[in-house]
Design a protein around this nucleic acid. Structure first.
Lengths: 210, 210
DNA sequence: AGCAATCAGTATCAAAAGTTACACAAGAAA
DNA sequence: TTTCTTGTGTAACTTTTGATACTGATTGCT
């Protein structure tokens, strides 16, 4: 596990911290679509993402979700830390976007290291800051943009996260993430296709780069 | 200043930290409506709110703002910390909702204390967590609620922050905070009045509690 | 091939929100 | 008092989004 950690976090943490992480934490692999954290879960471990991608969703009061942001290699879930430290239920759902690996660190250790390792403290703070920024971007999207722009940004994000220009999703799945209906997505996708920005296929969308 | 600090933070920080804060930081008073932090500002001090209330706004790309949340006594601005640590420009605007007092702490010290004082670390983390939660609430409002609900929640928040049932704002000012137009606000306020939830006066709105 | 399930396209209608325009009332200023 | 400024009410219209319903196309299964 130490080797895996070094690949993603070798330049972030010092040797001794890497070793300590390897000693006390567990490696977990996950498959695409797997629900890693659900609403209301109590979290007792903090996840460090080694490979793959995870999407973080917010739940509607009565049915329905909204994509907040994606996590990639080197990221951790600040919302999860919030729950760990506050010992409260999870406010979000984490779903595997691709298959991948995480290291699970016990909460106790994560608090201990805050006093002990400056690099750990920096990492944790940077994570919080990144997450705040992503939340701001989510708010910008919701508050200042129409659905057509939100949809296009979503497609660009997806493409970047999955490192491909071919997005393998049905319109219904996209509608869930953007908290709207399938018909609206179909309509707007067709418009994007007419603008020449994408090409539609069955259960997949091809991004046309300029 | 030490006395003022103890009033708001006496139960949060230990004596020695309180004294150190008092030594290195500056007291600042502000008046209602004053812009404390603006978009693009570089932040080199971290503010601890002693009294009064502050509202935090997000800027639209082309004109227009959106209220994110309010800060009260005992709060600090996590978005500001984010900027301090990241040494980037402010992503938000902070406007005094009422007159009040803040203690301004130099960034250097705030980082130093993270290693030195557990209570400081806890406070900073709790602040981050609170802010994340408030951002989530802002997102919930935007994504899952209609303007009429958002407006009513806004009025309740305002009343709570200002400790009064009489909200002294024009429809135009409310429209800015909710990022919509004056006409929409007038329309929805009139509807709320017809439902018996509020009573409208010139430049002021009276909340009717059940 | 035949059938069922899933996915996408489209039409129609309704609701929510934004836009423009104008009238009028309350205060402030002259 | 007259005039000007600011704040509010309302009508009429458009755009955006959501809801429903029905169609045909593709795919997988038997």
């Amino acid at each position: 596990m130490l080797e895996l950690l070094k690949e993603s976090y070798g330049f972030v943490f010092e040797e001794s911290l890497l070793e300590e992480i390897a000693q006390v934490s567990q490696l977990r692999t996950f498959e695409e679509g797997e629900i890693l954290i659900d609403f209301g879960d109590y979290i007792k471990t903090m996840p460090l993402l080694l490979s793959g991608a995870i999407k973080i969703l917010r739940e509607d009061f009565d049915e329905g979700e909204l994509l907040l942001y994606f996590l990639e290699k080197g990221d951790t879930c600040a919302m999860t830390m919030a729950c760990c430290l506050g010992e409260t239920k999870s406010e979000i759902r984490a779903v595997a976007e691709t298959k991948g690996k995480v290291v699970m660190i016990p909460v106790g250790k994560m608090e201990e290291w805050l006093g002990k390792y400056k690099s750990w403290r920096n990492y944790v703070f940077n994570s919080y800051n990144s997450r705040l920024k992503e939340m701001l971007m989510a708010i910008d999207n919701l508050a200042f943009m129409n659905m057509d722009e939100r949809l296009y940004n979503y497609l660009l994000d997806k493409a970047q996260i999955n490192k491909t220009n071919s997005i393998q999703n049905t319109h219904q799945e996209i509608a869930y993430d953007l908290h709207t209906s399938r018909v609206v997505i179909s309509r707007l996708l067709k418009a994007l296709e007419n603008e020449g920005k994408i090409k539609l296929h069955r259960a997949s969308i091809e991004l046309i780069r300029p």
